[in-house]
């Protein structure tokens, strides 16, 4: 195991906490706003009590307080669960944060089905659709712990990112996508694998990992699948997506989110306007998913597996021929 693999063999939220503390030590604008999440008090509050506040289990308050802090020149990281950020506190995000284009970093853990057996109150499969629809918001979905560190460090740059950001994280350790350092740029798709036959466009830890595995399966069948990690869902890297639409048979989008409104929706909107092509969307179907299971089990039921992705890619190619 390389140092890289050892360092990032952890959950996105764990590396987030460590990175946040690290940047806050040198950037006194950073302000950690907690809603009693558990885990921020031991590290962050213990070391930097003057840059920490717990506003209680009160997500509407979280967003309003964070907007107030940001308006005064601080750089608040608003911490809650993805579902609560996007649905419970949606209006405060829309009006107070997004509407004012304030540099609040909204950090939602338990993205997608990563809350597992906690059930649908704690799942967030509509958050990307909601956040993507709000003005001025950048929407980031890191694919693994290493990418999370890149993203969190990028969030401290208020010249590059003067507006609000939604950072969607998971809960448990997920596979590493990269084996070592790479170039991470917000708004720029990460080309994980070249290919000219078909393109897999993925966001989120499990979807990206399963897409990479699907490309391996397809390679064994003589199909060269391009794999794009869209860690930035908004603004979408239009050039990377449209190039894939032009250069390959079609697109398969893969996400741990509803098939409407999220990555698949964004890709379908873009291609419909600029280069109509076959877009097969894999993700969570419409419904209230009140079934018990682990993250990977729940996603497997939704069809987010390497074999299903490979099958969809082959179907896209057959339809093209």
């Amino acid at each position: 195991m390389t140092d890289w693999q050892e360092r990032y063999a952890t959950a996105t939220r764990d590396v987030y906490r460590a990175t946040l503390l690290d940047i806050a030590k040198s950037d006194t604008r950073v302000f950690c706003v907690d809603t009693d999440m558990g885990g921020l008090e031991d590290g962050f509050e213990a070391e930097l009590p003057d840059q920490y506040v717990n506003v209680g289990i009160a997500e509407a308050n979280l967003m309003g307080v964070s907007a107030g802090l940001a308006a005064e020149g601080l750089l608040p990281f608003a911490n809650t669960i993805a579902s609560f950020a996007a649905t419970r506190a949606c209006e405060q995000v829309k009006v107070d944060i997004a509407g004012n284009a304030l540099p609040v970093r909204i950090v939602g853990t338990h993205g997608g089905f990563s809350a597992g057996h906690y059930g649908p109150t704690h799942h967030a499969v509509e958050d990307v659709a909601i956040m993507r629809s709000l003005p001025n918001l950048t929407v980031l979905v890191p694919a693994d712990a290493a990418e999370t560190e890149y993203a969190v460090r990028a969030l401290a740059d208020t010249e590059q990112l003067p507006g609000p950001v939604y950072l969607r994280l998971g809960r448990k350790a997920t596979p590493l996508v990269h084996r070592g350092p790479y170039t991470f740029r917000i708004g720029q798709a990460d080309l994980l694998r070249p290919g000219r036959d078909v393109t897999l466009v993925a966001s989120g830890p499990v979807p990206v990992a399963e897409s990479v595995a699907a490309a391996e399966l397809l390679a064994g069948r003589g199909i060269a699948a391009r794999v794009l990690n869209l860690h930035t869902v908004k603004p979408l890297d239009a050039e990377a997506v449209l190039s894939a639409a032009r250069e390959t048979a079609g697109l398969v989008t893969v996400e741990d989110h509803l098939v409407t409104g999220g990555l698949g929706g964004a890709v379908a909107e873009l291609t419909a306007a600029h280069h109509p092509c076959r877009v097969h969307r894999i993700g969570v179907p419409d419904g209230f998913h009140d079934q018990v299971g682990t993250e990977t089990e729940l996603l497997a039921r939704a069809g987010v597996t390497a074999p299903a992705i490979a099958g969809a890619a082959e179907e896209v190619m057959r339809e093209r021929n």
Binding site: M63, V65, G68, A71, E72, P76
Partner: peptide, 27 residues
């Protein structure tokens, strides 16, 4: 105008964040 308002129930949280920041920055 410090913040656009109209949807009720937002202002006091904005005030909490503002007052907290004013205290933190010593203004």
């Amino acid at each position: 105008v410090e913040f656009p308002t109209g949807s009720l129930g937002h202002g006091l949280s904005l005030g909490v964040g503002t007052a907290l920041a004013l205290r933190r920055t010593g203004r």
